[in-house]
């Protein structure tokens, strides 16, 4: 890794956050449009050409709503919770590699925030903190539905983080590194790890669905049961914060999946960021498709699924990988 000027890092951070936040807005539109098509309807198409200004309209609506705090709420935590969720989601972006190093206008620029030697651990840590946003938000609302949503959130967190962590250890063993850039390079040198770790990939995506509270694992906000779950009492910008965190988490989880299993930014002809965007787009369409198809799991089934299926499978996958790597399979 070559050192960059501080200004370059600052500009890079601003650009990445700007791009990803715009992507988040259009991701919502994409989801609504795609789900509309899957459900025999059009989705938003009134605001601007093809409904392309819908995110702007949503933003204005959210900003103009009353900033409301319920009487029974814990004022500080209630305000803090969405901030934590967004902070954790945005923070995870700092280690996702969008491309390799390039030289722009005589400056050396790495197309990633930073290449930590514990990059993946940081992502997991931040996703854990993001869950605190949900849990505290539900707990601080002073609402029983929100409390139930928060309790489910906590249960989901403990059930899925372990399986998610274990599902990627196989990749780490193959790449012999926790740095996401190194993992991408290792895949560029050999093959995409989805071929070597298919079980790991599936487990990671399943746990990722649960981590991002996407259907069929959207129990913390199950609208049929808990009204809106942990964000029942949230409205306006604070609600927008939770929505933003959820969609940013989708981007983060799919980016990590693309980086760990699909070769990340590596690929022929096109520049790195485009490759990553293509891979992320395909994975996200998959998530949206799942949402349109699957009913919601029941709370206890979800825990059972996490502990009795995902975790043993991940452990088995890990043991077999360790055995193969230990016997000296693609040990570079």
């Amino acid at each position: 890794m070559i050192q960059e000027a501080f200004l370059v890092i600052l500009i890079k951070a601003v650009v990445v956050v700007f791009i990803v936040v715009t992507t988040f807005a259009y991701l919502m539109l994409l989801e609504r449009k795609l789900m509309g098509r899957m459900q025999l309807r059009y989705g938003p198409n009134r605001t601007g050409p093809f409904g392309l200004l819908q995110p702007a309209a949503d933003l204005v609506k959210m900003l103009l709503k009353e900033d409301f705090t319920p009487a029974g709420a814990n004022k500080v935590l209630f305000q803090l919770a969405p901030v934590m969720a967004v902070f954790a989601a945005v923070g995870s972006l700092s280690v996702i590699p969008f491309g390799d190093s390039v030289t722009l206008w005589g400056h050396h620029v790495n197309l990633y925030g930073t290449d930590l030697n514990v990059g993946l651990l940081l992502v997991f840590a931040l996703s854990g903190i993001g869950f605190y946003g949900l849990i505290l938000g539900g707990y601080a609302s002073g609402n029983k539905y929100a409390l139930l949503g928060a309790a489910r959130s906590a249960a989901q967190l403990v059930s899925y983080e372990v399986a998610m962590g274990l599902s990627v250890v196989g990749v780490l063993m193959l790449a012999q590194s926790l740095s996401l850039v190194d993992i991408v390079h290792a895949q560029a040198d050999t093959v995409w790890y989805i071929l070597l770790q298919p079980v790991g990939f599936i487990l990671f995506m399943l746990a990722g669905l649960a981590e991002t509270n996407r259907p069929p694992f959207d129990l913390p906000e199950a609208e049929g049961e808990l009204v809106a779950g942990y964000h029942t009492e949230y409205g306006g910008t604070k609600f927008a914060g939770f929505a933003m965190a959820e969609y940013l988490n989708m981007i983060v989880v799919t980016s990590i999946a693309a980086t760990l299993f699909l070769g990340g930014f590596s690929g022929p002809w096109l520049p790195g960021p485009i490759w990553l965007a293509i891979k992320v787009f395909i994975l996200i369409v998959g998530l949206i498709w799942i949402r349109a198809t699957m009913p919601r799991l029941r709370y206890d089934r979800l825990m059972k699924f996490g502990w009795k299926i995902l975790l043993p499978l991940a452990t088995l996958n890990l043991l077999i990988t360790a055995l193969v790597v230990g016997l000296g399979f693609p040990n570079k």
Binding site: M35, M38, Q39, L40, G224, E225, A292, T293, M294, P295
Partner: peptide, 16 residues
């Protein structure tokens, strides 16, 4: 009842 269980798409098919 599909909506309640989170299977949102079936609603639009039945309403057709």
């Amino acid at each position: 009842s599909g909506l309640e269980l989170g299977a949102i798409s079936v609603f639009f098919f039945t309403y057709r």
